[in-house]
Design a protein around this nucleic acid. Structure first.
Lengths: 350, 350
DNA sequence: GGCATGCTGGACACCGGTATCAATAATTGC
DNA sequence: GCAATTATTGATACCGGTGTCCAGCATGCC
């Protein structure tokens, strides 16, 4: 007698339909859905059969309302590197796959003076359980404060710890950059150029620190004329390449703070007839698709971005994930790795 | 006397709080929120003042429940080209910015035999108003049928109309490819190679059609030995490049069905010492970041992907967007454009 | 056999909005 | 000036779940 409209275009069955079919109350069905204890095996089986039969799927909006919290997490980003965002997204989705959570993606404009208002409106409207901040906006302390204020959990993804461990997933970029540069020095490079990232970016600062560290260890310094400004864009790489490679005494190797700029430097080298890696070694950072698509393929640093996505989810919402509720304090620094391709060799004289 | 817990960590004010403060019923507040007519200017002002004062933001879950539909649209994709996905996403978000809608992004695995089940589960669980299918999964008729079945609106993004206009946003890829190839012929190229896309992809077939069309117009044909298989990946470009450029009679130009494969062909040319564009012209498709990052910069076809995102939103949920409720039948074919860069020139002999 | 105890499962209120429909206020016609 | 008409508002049920709290029943104990 229960109206069980089903099938194409029809209404979705509700918990009441299930309860009626199984001959129990809706609360009992609710218990089954939420895996409550205190249930006879018999009752559980009956309810599960009814659920199966009706193809019942709980309405997430209703659950959200009743639970007084929804099951959304937000990913906020303003990243020029699409692959990074998507890989991170994949990691997060891998982590929440078997949970009730869904992911809301929100690109923002870090340049806008309404950034904070935008994010506030978004968070107030959607009320996600938590938010993930990808670099570079993860470096914005006001955003973190805003989340705190609104009672929204958050994690910040960064190149170095920015906050206490429970709010921060990072990688050891500085160390790996240093390792890469040590490699150049070991090959015999002495005049090594550097293309910086944008001013005020933590990631840029970390890469620079690693670079200078390695030079210092070898008793080398970075002459001002080999230190080029940059902003992570291809065109900045072009400009830096022009500046560094037009000199009478060009560097024999250049470390670029990301792959796009490295591609720019590489283009300049090609157009000037400078052989890479024979006459010039180049190293980038990110391991973006560009790194493998340019010729010769770029040696670079691979950021464990997908793993960071997984870890970010585990840190943000451990209570919603089944087993991997890891919360080990220091586990939130993940290792970047050096990827050696064809853009590095010994300098000409050796 | 009304309890207005506000501020950090406090509860969000509800419609009841607003009603109490404004001295009206909750239904009236609801009317204000939903811009109902039949409201005195005075009442509206009073309610709006209370909303403002309390910083009230309606709970989307509660609205979704009461409206019997949520305000989510889903973006389903399995796209190797991250930039495309992100640009499309931007377009959609631009379009829905001032609406109540939110965007749920869902990567899927087109290779999985559980694809349909995955998508079904996702749609049943989240119950979005509509779904957007990006290529290549947009070509999957079963997915479209599934949406239909579940009563979820959908639009398919493709290289050519796949369905009736109200379900399909496409671009005129065939024509633009033909235009590009005509350009090569006009420059004097006669032996033009082709690197195909993956078998069974509509996008690949369209590009091939355009290519052959232009050849036919000029009375040319594509010799089997210049027709290389591909799968849109860089490595396929490498293989195709090896096959085509190792011949005694190599082509003087190669059209590649996407940029990544073009980058592969370009790498092979570089490593064989073949000058691009002096000895070999190359054209790609997509205008991905790779196209500008490689050297020389790649001539390619730009897909109006962001505009397609906007149009997709307008087609999918015109009733939720304010003015741009365009539904003109034939307006859903958007123009791709040829982007001329430095990888094309006249063939050696001319 | 009667009673305390521990499990189960149900009745009912509630989450924060919207729909229905009747009640009330404002306007109009004559 | 009064009834008829129309514009505006409110009372109450309801959307589809969950929490609270209590009742019913089987069991163990004396």
């Amino acid at each position: 007698m229960a109206a069980q409209t089903k099938g194409p275009g029809g209404k979705q069955p509700t918990i009441n339909d299930v309860a009626a079919l199984a001959g129990v109350s809706k609360k009992t069905v609710s218990r089954v859905i939420n895996r409550s204890e205190f249930l006879t095996e018999k009752t559980r089986a009956a309810v599960e059969k009814a659920i199966e039969q009706l193809g019942f799927v709980p309405n997430p909006q209703a659950r959200a309302l009743a639970f007084r919290r929804n099951f959304l997490i937000a990913l906020l980003h303003d990243n020029p590197n699409a692959q990074t965002v998507l890989n991170f997204q994949r990691g997060v989705l891998d982590a929440i796959k078997d949970s009730d959570l869904a992911l809301l993606v929100r690109p923002v404009d870090r340049g806008s003076d309404k950034l904070l208002d935008d994010v506030r409106t978004f968070l107030e409207k959607q009320r996600p359980i938590g938010a993930m901040l990808l670099p570079p906006i993860s470096e914005n302390d006001d955003l973190a404060a805003l989340c705190e204020d609104l009672g929204v959990r958050y994690v910040r993804i960064g190149s170095a710890p920015l906050d206490d461990a429970k709010h921060c997933i990072s990688s050891n970029d500085r160390e790996v950059v240093a390792e890469a540069v040590r490699g150049l020095i070991a090959l015999g490079h002495r005049r090594i150029g550097f293309v910086r990232g944008p001013v005020g970016f933590r990631s840029a600062a970390e890469r620079e620190k690693g670079f200078l560290e390695a030079l210092a260890e070898a008793g080398l310094t970075l002459p001002a004329e080999l230190n080029a400004p940059g902003n992570y864009r291809y065109t900045a790489g072009i400009e830096a390449g022009e500046a560094l490679l037009s000199r009478a005494d060009p560097p024999t190797a250049i470390f670029c703070s990301n792959d796009e700029m490295a591609a720019g430097v590489m283009s300049v080298a090609h157009s000037k007839g400078i052989k890479v890696p024979g006459e010039l070694s180049i190293i980038g950072f990110d391991d973006s698709p560009t790194a493998t698509h340019i010729w010769p393929a770029l040696s670079t640093v691979r950021w464990p971005i997908r793993e960071m996505g997984i870890r970010a989810a585990q840190t943000l919402v451990p209570d919603f994930l089944s087993p991997g509720a890891k919360a080990d304090d220091e586990g939130n620094v993940l290792p970047s790795t050096l990827v050696e391709r064809q853009s590095v060799a010994a300098p000409p004289g050796r």
